[in-house]
Design a protein around this nucleic acid. Sequence first.
DNA 1: AATTTATTTGACTCAAGGTTCAAATTTATA
DNA 2: TATAAATTTGAACCTTGAGTCAAATAAATT
Lengths: 218, 218
Amino acid sequence: MNTSLDIKQAFDRERQFAEKRRAVIQSASSAFRRRGYHNTSMVEIAKTLGLTKAALYYYVKNKEEILYESHIMTYDAMDAVLKTWRSRNKMNETVNKTPSELSGSELTGLNHLEGVFRDFVLLLTQSGVSLLTDVDSLGGEWKANVLKRRQIIEKHVLRIVKDGQKDGSIRTGDARLHVFFFMGALNWLNAWYEADGRLTGAVISEHFIAQLSRGIQV
Amino acid sequence: MNTSLDIKQAFDRERQFAEKRRAVIQSASSAFRRRGYHNTSMVEIAKTLGLTKAALYYYVKNKEEILYESHIMTYDAMDAVLKTWRSRNKMNETVNKTPSELSGSELTGLNHLEGVFRDFVLLLTQSGVSLLTDVDSLGGEWKANVLKRRQIIEKHVLRIVKDGQKDGSIRTGDARLHVFFFMGALNWLNAWYEADGRLTGAVISEHFIAQLSRGIQV
DNA sequence: AATTTATTTGACTCAAGGTTCAAATTTATA
DNA sequence: TATAAATTTGAACCTTGAGTCAAATAAATT
């Protein structure tokens, strides 16, 4: 007989399954970041979770799927950051305004970018989230999807930069090159940052924002 | 009977061998940059050179050796850049001087850095040289060596930045973070740059230097 | 306690791709 | 042209690690 308890239990099952699956992906993702996708075997991934290789396949179809989900997880987190700042900045999103036209509550493009960039750095240093580079290990469909997600994020960041150029807070010049420059810092961060090091995410983000800001402001 | 001709011929043999070996490594290096080390098979490497897989082993011990030499080749080129600028700047290398003490012919730390950075960008865009990230696919000895070479370069760049801070051309702050930031741009460049694209190395380097410069100058 | 369902495992298969090697081919030398 | 040395190849071998599956264990349900 079905009771509401059954449903709750079933739901709990699903939740636990989802949590474990997420744990698999996050743990693997971290290993991928440190050692690289191909230098991380399924056995290793399993062992760090106290499981055996075969058990992983209960949560995941493929090793490739783990890589794919790792990417998606990161891009979801980055999208969330962008979304937060976009809503915090709703007013001057659609209309292009010169600095003098900006009311006090609105952000300049530069400030907007600084906020986003700070949150990106904090994301990569303080959450388990990491920006993986191994896109070419994904096959057709999956690779295309990941690249699409990346492009969307770059588009949004590019939008912010261009808005900043419009409102006069960011100096002119090829906006894509602006973006490439500081996104490089973000990607490189993944390579050298170690969570246990002396540098905290806060310190890094402040320093990076100083460079970013001076580098592109008018 | 031995003649001077024999010697010349033998020398030519060696030279041709060295050239072909270099071609193998450069071609492979380029593929590694685009598709990644593990996504590039020996067969593919051979095929792009019009050879068969087995022939590669006449020029090279391992696939791993190819990766190693790729790294070394890049670091050699970067060292050469650093060396050029160091000799061009011999005067204020040992002594720390304030800006007012610099004679006209000497470079500020900032100018020195700009020059080096420009040449790095040109190197990565115009020569076949590429900054590979796949260090973890190298075993023990080799990996250690590559990391040592990378550290030496970072040390030199760090030195330039610190000199710039001393002579007042570069603003204070954690010099390592300065370096991490703009070296990120360099590494990321490898991921997105395509030689056939609309952006030339010259354009990129000018733009990047503008950001670098404004980002770190006092 | 018995039974069903979810989770984990050990032992295996299988393919991919790096590596080897004796033989073939090409190139240089006498 | 005959011989030797350098270069390339085809056909194997071998290792690694991903993926499978029936059976075992654990957890929940009756």
